[in-house]
Write a protein that binds this DNA or RNA. Sequence first.
RNA 1: GUGGGCGUAGCCUAGCGGUUAAGGCGCCAGGUUGUGGCCCUGGAGAUCGAGGGUUCGAAUCCCUCCGCUCACCCCA
Length: 418
Amino acid sequence: MYRAPRGTSDILPREQGYWSYIRQKAAAICELYSYQRIDTPTFEDAGLFVRSIGEETDIVEKEMYTLEDRSGDKLTLRPEGTASVCRAYVEHGMHTLPQPVRLYYDAAIFRYERPQAGRYREHHQFGVEALGEIDPALDAEIIDIAWQFYVNLGLDGLILNLNSIGCNVCRPAYLDTLRGYYAQHLSMLCPDCQRRLARNPLRLLDCKKASCIPLADQAPRSTDYLCGECADHFDQLERYLALLNLPFIVNHRLVRGLDYYTKTVFEIAPEGEVVAQATIGAGGRYDNLIEQLGGKPTPAIGFATGIERLVLNLKKQKRAVPEPVSPSVFIAYLGQDAKEEAIKLVSLLRRSGLSVILACGDRSLKAQLKQANSTGARQAVIIGEDEIKRGTVVLRDMDKGEQQTIQLGEVVKVLSRS
RNA sequence: GUGGGCGUAGCCUAGCGGUUAAGGCGCCAGGUUGUGGCCCUGGAGAUCGAGGGUUCGAAUCCCUCCGCUCACCCCA
């Protein structure tokens, strides 16, 4: 028997309420903030992701679904959304549009990882990107969209973590300082952190091992090493977030796993959750990425949120989502003549805008009404041999259990009224 | 990649060495010559994840593999 591949899942009809609810809220907030939808290909040139995410990251080193097509091109199923949007920005000359360009996407994301709660090999992200402007007011706008989106979904108890990891000017010196600090405490570090020290010292800051946390708390803070421009940017952002009444907390241990981030980074997670995969949304500024991909130097900032994790949290917080709509009419028939009349009637009713289910399989009336009941239809139309002779139908109210006989020609009119 | 837990009908669960593997939900049919929801009766549906071993005898014990799941690394 075939099964859905590991780490993928079928989103069954009973789950779809959560998905349509989330997507509808996403589209609504994007309209409100004037972000326009963009869809990019499911796969891209492998090099796009290697260049943007970074050679040394876990995503590139071990998590990409890369394949060679028949022409020998190396293609990768997108492991995140930002790189593709930047590629499209450059490819279509969006720098000629009024800046910033505000875009959003809602796409499947693929990473080869061991699945666990809230982590899948195929998952979906809703993301927004604002490209072509460095004003910290835009950072605030992106964070505001994210926060208001969660508010609109009805999620409570979220924490907004904020940090600045500097830019090409100030980060190298900070990293040196950080390496120097940790080198003094080498023996106290967990094996993972000893390994991380050489490759990516920022990562030591968010180690969750009890033994490493005190060291990380005492570690030099990136915000103390920012250059004038970055420090100024961060100050202004904090001021704007305060103006927006967004309850952020500056978290010096917040770093991100992708190389392209500069200055602002942020994460939103449910309160009290310590595991990394509790994060429901995250983002940051990436002022060098577009230039790195062959465009002109172009600052930009974005945010993405995992839809599966939102569904998980909506369920955990017992948020009600819209129920699937029931058909308004179910049509039952008895005998071939009645079946043919029913087929014509169904068509008439649907053209007048009513959602209708027609019984099928020539089953007993009892079985047909039982099915009518389980579909949740409010009205049942019953057509039998007697009704055919008289040119009538029986109209049964499924809630009240009352029924009446009406002329066949009246059915559309009567049902359209109810 | 590493470690823990778990695999019995579509779903949930019982059985944990001894006859034809049990129950609930759901599905189908009957109880009403053309009438749903409640109730009653019946039916279909499981090579007990796969393979190997121990045993007179294995869903049950052991081994291997596969799958699911949770955690670590890392990420939404």
